[in-house]
């Protein structure tokens, strides 16, 4: 039995330990927002948050998340309270087909949770490895930049969105291939 936190709720699954997290989330918990792309951790479509870091779940065994906190696109915002990035995604018309967007959103939100003023280079580094066949990279970058600017303005900072502190700032663990 493997227990972890999924989108803020404690969950347990009895499943082979080497099952990729993506399939546990999609097949067992029926959260289909995270997509299967390459199955080798190369495209980023399956990205989720693991203790705040963006990880490629198609190559991440479920046993490795025991006792940890997993967040999927479904846990990022709600209909009443969209995550600022989700709003920026909509405002900038970022997705085309939309297949890669959940992974892109998760990595972008992980970046902004750690660094509210990312440089262009930092955005590129955080988002590299996310493949968008529609080629919407400029819009995605613009959405991230606009969100960072908006979050830096105290007036527009949404309730519950936290600024980086010594506790939650972690170095990028380089989980992305």
């Amino acid at each position: 039995m493997i227990s972890f936190q999924l989108n803020g709720e404690d969950v347990s699954v009895d499943i082979p330990a080497d099952t990729p997290l993506l399939w546990v989330i999609r097949d067992y918990f029926k959260l289909k927002g995270s997509k299967f792309g390459c199955g080798k951790g190369l495209c980023g479509a399956c990205s989720m948050h693991l203790d705040g870091d963006s990880v490629r779940t198609c190559i991440h065994p479920v046993s490795a998340v025991s006792g940890k906190s997993v967040k999927t696109i479904e846990g990022l915002g709600s209909a009443d309270n969209l995550h600022p990035l989700q709003q920026a995604w909509i405002d900038n018309n970022a997705p085309q087909c939309g297949y890669c967007q959940s992974g892109q959103l998760m990595s972008a939100s992980a970046l902004l949770a750690k660094n509210l003023s990312p440089s262009e280079e930092e955005i590129d580094n955080a988002m590299k490895g996310h493949i968008c066949r529609c080629g919407t990279y400029p819009r995605i970058k613009k959405a991230i930049t606009e969100t960072a600017k908006a979050l830096n303005s105290t007036a527009s900072r949404p309730v519950g969105y936290y600024l980086p502190t010594e506790n939650n700032v972690q170095e990028d663990k380089g989980e992305s291939p």
């Binding site: 927002g33 696109i73 479904e74 909509i90 997705p95 087909c97 297949y99």
Partner: peptide, 14 residues
């Protein structure tokens, strides 16, 4: 909707 796309990862344009 585009909101569903952003919230649930649905491929709205497809």
């Amino acid at each position: 909707t585009v909101e569903q796309a952003a919230l649930e990862g649905m491929t709205q344009r497809v």
